[in-house]
Amino acid sequence: MTDRTTPPPRAAIDRAGRWVDRAFRIQATALYLFLYVPIALVVLFSFNAGNRTGELRGLSLRWYQVAVEDPFAMGALQNSFVVGAWTAVIATTLGTLAALALQRTPRRIRAVFEAITYVAIIIPGIVIGIATLIFFVNAFAWINPQLAGIWAAIGAGAPPTIGTGLHTIIAAHVLFTMAIVIVLVRARLAGMDRSLTEASFDLFASPLRTFVQVTLPQLRPAIITGALLAFTFSFDDYVIASFVAGPGKPTLPMYVFSSIRRGITPEINAIAAMVLTVTVTLLVIVSLIYRRSSRIAAAQRAAATADAAAGTS
């Protein structure tokens, strides 16, 4: 942050300019400290050998052991992984299909669908939590008597009842992560080279084959990014999950939140540090995928231009 690249020509005489420049750099440095020191402190205290989060008394991995051996924390972690993985799979599938379909729908339907998609993204989690809770309560109030009726009619004994649980959290998370996937895939489709699809059709490939061999490979970065983002958002969500979670099946954020309410111990820091590691790893994967795909795209574009140039000369 401190070294200077290519100073503007008049900088040497412009003393006021140098002060402005310095002020900007100090402000930026302060903000980066502001952003990262709290996170660093969370990680630091996770290595605390003492009993309290605020006071550091030597370093140890003690609280990591406590966290790993805590059956409630690990159960919640497992729940979060299950919810995140299913959310990613369903949101990516439905979102990609919808994005592909939107290319071919009449403009009016597309506009309505896009509007709902933006609403689903921008609406606060609390509203999504309430909306999905209302849907589930009404749906279960309708379905369970039906099931009871059917079971009574065939004389199969005690009827099953459907209630809240991990599946309801997944359904609620899919609502807004699917919208994010739709936006990502549509952006990618808009920037895609149409001539390849046309070439594939000209070579008598079936629509399905064209999709698998031409469209899908080009969409892959957007789809993978969408899936990882869906997982991250789902893994991170507290508010929506707290509305639609079933009894006794909390996600990790729910567990962390209620632990914080009970009292702060370095165990929370240890869990937080582990969660941070997972998220940062996923972020690195996303950025690597993006960098690779943009490099490949640039290479392809360069090759195409070279071809075109060779063709005209």
Partner: peptide, 17 residues
């Protein structure tokens, strides 16, 4: 192709609103 996503929006967002 659009149906699953539309169902999701309708049941979990529009109808509840």
């Amino acid at each position: 192709l659009l149906l699953p996503a539309a169902t999701w929006y309708a049941l979990l967002l529009l109808v509840p609103l």
